[in-house]
Design a protein around this nucleic acid. Structure first.
Lengths: 218, 218
DNA sequence: GTTTGAATTAAACGTTTGTTTAACTTTGCG
DNA sequence: CGCAAAGTTAAACAAACGTTTAATTCAAAC
């Protein structure tokens, strides 16, 4: 874990705020320097370049997030149902509390083709599925979950839903001109609904008797 | 509906390809002109500016997509279950067949705060929910769907899942160095699984008996 | 064949971009 | 204090950007 000075952290926080609001490309180093009230040259001085600053941001938040996610693996023994609910909670809480970084990451992820950022995101996606797989297999071993669960599917639903919900909230709040506490309240309510219904939906799906797949021939 | 000349359509198609691959900001007018084998000045000549070109792209694909989505409203009578499955099919098919535009739109949507693009996307989000609401209410009227379904939740799950699945496919294909037909095949299989399991999950959730919401006090 | 307006071109425009330079200030240590 | 390293600054840099200009080519109408 890299240690950063207060000034470095100030630059990183300011950059994250601007990157998430305006996008990485539309945010200039001058914007960051002005908002953080430091000289333009400080970014290059501390981080090397604008892109390296982005990488530093990714590394910082990734270590935090993956740490959170992995901690659930070492939770006290709990039922398969509880494990699934725990996973949903951890994902929602993490994506919600770090939504600025999440928005930046999702946006940049959509155009990456290679490089350190691509590798980090790919690793995280794989980790997410591993986490999901554990809980599912536990339930299958106990015979309470259906056998044909697809983890690739489940993790897409979980993460996709949270991101889409957050994006929708932003649009609704923006359109209704909600600000500050009002916007946060609106978002919080929607997230609570998402949390509750997502759990119910996952359990309903996981405990559903398997159907014959009509798309298969034979 | 605006009519475009062949050359205008060539520019628009090329722009969409580059925008979706590299992102709007990282694609220069020179890139587009070079790829389309036209002069740099033609973009401004035909569309006025780079941003107006993006708006033209949005308008063009929006009219197509909203048309597709609305057509389902006038489908022959079908059961509530069929209606839900139809909606899932239409969404997946549309997002899949126009995934380049979908990727561009999702990416730009995440940083929009106002303007014509914001309005277009907001209108589409609202339309999506209206469509979903119809099917849900039909099922509720017949007494086969639970009463506490949240449409905001359902549409987030549907659209978010598809987008996340497509994003994951791109990452997996990129990482496994799949190309052309191989990558398409991989994606097609994942989409089929998504389609099948999403339908099962939605039906399982919608027909689930309502639970007492523990988060409410009273 | 001439004319007229659209299509097309290469070149240039002024800005903004990320980055670097070189000078200056501050800080910490012997 | 004296000095070296780190921090900080304003200024300058070349490159890339979106856009415009002015000249030229083209195609159709008369």
């Amino acid at each position: 874990m890299i240690e950063y000075s207060e000034k470095q952290l100030l630059i990183m926080d300011t950059a994250l705020q601007l990157f998430s609001e305006k996008g990485y490309d539309k945010t200039s180093i001058r914007d960051i320097a002005h908002a953080a009230e430091v000289n333009i040259a400080m970014v290059s001085y501390y981080f090397g370049s604008k892109e390296k600053l982005l990488e530093a941001l990714f590394k910082k938040h990734f270590t935090f997030i993956t740490g959170k996610l992995e901690s659930i693996l070492y939770e006290k023994d709990s039922t398969a149902f509880e494990k699934v609910e725990q996973i949903i909670d951890v994902f929602i809480n993490t994506l919600y509390s770090r939504q600025r970084f999440n928005r930046l990451m999702t946006r940049e992820a959509s155009v990456l083709q290679e490089g350190p950022l691509f590798d980090m995101i790919f690793e995280m996606k794989t980790k997410n599925r591993k986490l999901m797989e554990r809980a599912v297999k536990a339930g299958q071993r106990l015979g309470v979950f259906r056998k044909d669960v697809n983890v690739f599917f489940l993790s897409s639903v979980l993460i996709g839903s949270v991101n889409q919900m957050l994006a929708n909230c932003r649009y609704e709040a923006q359109n209704a001109k909600l600000e500050g506490a009002e916007a946060e309240n609106f978002q919080q309510k929607k997230i609570d609904i998402l949390r509750s219904h997502l759990k119910q939906m996952f359990i309903a799906y996981l405990t559903q008797p398997e159907l014959i797949d009509k798309s298969k021939n034979g």
